[in-house]
């Protein structure tokens, strides 16, 4: 089997490749979204904790 036959899929190229592309794309999108929101919450929490630490230090300095 050569490449053009492979892409042709015995006349079902559109159906086969749309299905495959759609599936792989969805999985990729899930992965990107999951990773992004994971990184986001981590940096968000880090900022929050640093802010709280600073505030705690300032208030103890005032005391």
């Amino acid at each position: 089997m050569n490449w053009s036959e492979f892409f042709h899929m015995g006349g079902y190229a559109f159906h086969v490749w749309t299905s495959w592309a759609l599936s792989m794309l969805s999985l990729l999108v899930i992965l990107i979204v999951a990773k992004r929101s994971n990184a986001k919450i981590k940096s968000e929490l880090l900022r929050q904790y640093k802010r709280e630490d600073r505030q705690a230090q300032q208030s103890s300095a005032v005391d």
């Binding site: 089997m1 015995g10 079902y12 086969v16 299905s19 599936s23 792989m24």
Partner: peptide
């Protein structure tokens, strides 16, 4: 190479 390849997704 046939339409059945959709089965794999």
């Amino acid at each position: 190479g046939d339409s059945f390849r959709i089965i794999y997704v």
